[in-house]
Amino acid sequence: MKWDDLDKQPCSLARALSVVGDRWTLVILRDCFLGVRRFDDLEKRLGITRHVLADRLKKLVEHGVLYKTPYQQKPVREEYRLTEKGLALHPVVMALVHWGDQHMADERGAPIVHVHKQCGQFMQPVTVCSCCGEPVTARDIRVEVGSGWQDRSSELIPEKDCC
């Protein structure tokens, strides 16, 4: 499988990675969720080259994850805002942050914490079943071929559990 062909794979993860699957894109999205919207602010915060930042922002706009809106007219200057498609990535970003807090933080702990506005408590993301509401882990899931599967003879889905 070639990196440039990920968007053509019969796998939703591969297709998603074709849009958001590099480190710069994920930290750009992190900053967008933190309310950073302007090119110069992103460049300064991330220490990223203008070329790479422009490339990643262009791709996110092309794929409908971000949209540009003017904040100044003369000269026209635009900021980047999350679309509904972009906001739908919030659970993904939160899950990666949570993993980083658990497995990559130093002895000082998590660099930032998330507070649920409604109850005021510190929160951690939890994956739950959309039908019964019970928390689920990798051991609680069985994978089956879905209607979007193109090659039903493929061996991509093993018959044994993952763990």
Results as ranks from 00 to 15, higher is better:
K2V: 06
D5Q: 14
L6K: 11
K8M: 09
Q9I: 08
Q9P: 01
Q9K: 15
P10R: 05
P10G: 05
C11H: 13
S12D: 13
S12W: 07
R15T: 02
L17R: 12
V19K: 05
V19T: 15
G21T: 09
C32R: 08
C32L: 15
G35D: 10
R37H: 15
R37Y: 06
R38A: 09
D41C: 03
R45D: 12
R45Y: 08
L46K: 00
L46Y: 04
G47C: 04
I48S: 03
R50K: 14
H51T: 13
L53W: 05
L53S: 05
L53G: 06
L57H: 04
K58A: 13
L60S: 01
L60G: 01
E62V: 04
E62Q: 15
H63K: 15
G64I: 07
K68A: 14
T69M: 09
T69Y: 09
P70W: 03
P70G: 02
Y71G: 02
Q72L: 12
Q73H: 08
K74G: 01
P75N: 04
R77T: 03
Y80C: 04
R81L: 15
L82M: 06
T83D: 02
E84V: 06
A88V: 02
A88Q: 11
A88F: 09
H90Y: 13
H90D: 08
H90V: 07
L96S: 03
V97W: 08
V97P: 00
H98A: 13
H98C: 04
W99K: 09
W99Y: 14
D101H: 15
D101R: 09
H103W: 13
R108V: 06
G109R: 07
G109E: 08
P111T: 06
I112K: 05
H116I: 06
K117H: 10
C119E: 09
G120V: 11
F122L: 10
M123G: 00
P125T: 10
V126E: 15
V126P: 01
T127F: 08
C129N: 05
C131M: 07
G133D: 03
P135K: 10
V136E: 04
V136A: 05
R139T: 11
D140T: 06
I141Y: 04
R142Y: 11
G146D: 12
S147M: 04
S147Q: 08
S147K: 12
G148S: 07
W149Q: 09
Q150C: 07
R152H: 10
R152C: 03
S153L: 08
E155G: 09
E155C: 06
I157G: 01
I157E: 06
I157R: 07
P158D: 06
P158V: 10
P158R: 13
E159D: 13
E159L: 12
K160I: 10
K160T: 15
D161V: 09
D161K: 14
C163M: 08
